[in-house]
């Protein structure tokens, strides 16, 4: 039983205890785990082939995604599947998939010239984000047209969503193997305790929304950022394999899920199970 865990090494100052614990549990359970840091080695593309029963794509770096694309092309089993992980890295693609599935998202726009958003500001502020951004980096709420002058399109398309004033703190919804976990978290979280947030019981409406996202994308390991505004939920971000901070026993649950996915692969099945039909749009 061999797993290749594709990861990005974080600075030692960053507190991220979940993945080392996931690896430790899998090793304890008899799995051979190779942690692969693509940025720290030279990969000979001629030799890229499946060397593990399952690859776990934790890193969302450009190199990790490219390496996963190469592995995917050779038939490797990857969790989350490469095409989905790639789509989720691109907010334009991901949001379109979610909208098509009937997931409530704010009105969403994309352009290569941020100044063109000016006319949209008549209807209210916009949240402008890097289209391949993550963890809240580079997010701006734009109220006036002159603020658009500060936004460049140097890094590719500019992505904007209608701003809805959130009620209370943000809601994070995490999915591990189809199981949902809600965490209330202040944004921006300043301390580690704030990052951990507080578990909450997800409402039936949010449950349907969250499961519908997974079904639309065909994955079971993801996280959503949801805001509630005027009583309505809006999915404002989705990530493949997020940090799962604040999920009780997160490492154990993730390891259990990966182990089950590995067993499915070893029995000749897909690593990912189809989502229940009840959440179909």
């Amino acid at each position: 039983m061999k797993i290749g865990m594709v990861m990005l090494r974080h600075p030692p100052t960053r507190k991220s205890p979940i993945m080392p614990e996931v690896v430790r549990l899998l090793v304890d359970w008899g799995v051979t785990v190779e942690v692969i840091y693509p940025e720290e080695r030279v990969t000979d593309l001629a030799n890229v082939k499946p060397e593990h029963d399952l690859y776990v794509l934790k890193s969302g770096s450009e190199l990790a995604l490219s390496l996963s694309a190469a592995l995917h092309a050779t038939g490797a089993n990857i969790l989350n599947p490469y095409p989905v992980a790639a789509a989720l890295r691109d907010k334009v693609a991901a949001t379109r998939i979610l909208l098509a599935a009937g997931v409530p998202c704010p009105n969403t726009y994309v352009t290569s010239n941020p100044k063109l958003f000016a006319t949209l500001l008549d209807a209210g502020p916009l949240v402008v984000k890097p289209y391949r951004g993550s963890q809240g980096r580079g997010v701006h709420v734009v109220w006036d047209a002159d603020e658009l002058d500060d936004i460049t399109a140097d890094c590719g398309p500019v992505f904007a969503q209608r701003y809805h004033k959130p009620e209370g703190v943000d809601r994070k919804i995490y999915c591990v193997g189809g199981q949902l976990f809600g965490v209330l978290r202040a944004w921006p979280a300043k301390t580690y305790a704030e990052k951990l947030g507080e578990p909450f019981t997800i409402t039936p409406e949010l449950k349907t929304v969250a499961l519908r996202c997974g079904q639309a994308l065909g994955i079971e390991l993801y996280g959503l950022d949801v805001i509630i505004s005027e009583g309505k939920p809006y999915v404002v971000d989705i990530a493949s394999f997020p940090g799962f901070k604040g999920v009780p026993d997160a490492a154990l649950r993730i390891a259990d899920y990966i182990y089950a996915a590995l067993q499915r692969v070893l029995e000749g099945h897909s690593a990912v199970l189809p989502m229940p039909k009840e959440v179909a749009a």
């Binding site: 549990l25 359970w29 193997g177 199981q179 026993d249 154990l252 649950r253 390891a255 259990d256 899920y257 182990y259 089950a260």
Partner: peptide, 13 residues
């Protein structure tokens, strides 16, 4: 609690 295996469940404190 949603675990798949006995070996996982008994690791839950």
């Amino acid at each position: 609690k949603g675990y798949h295996y006995i070996h996982s469940a008994v690791r839950d404190p």
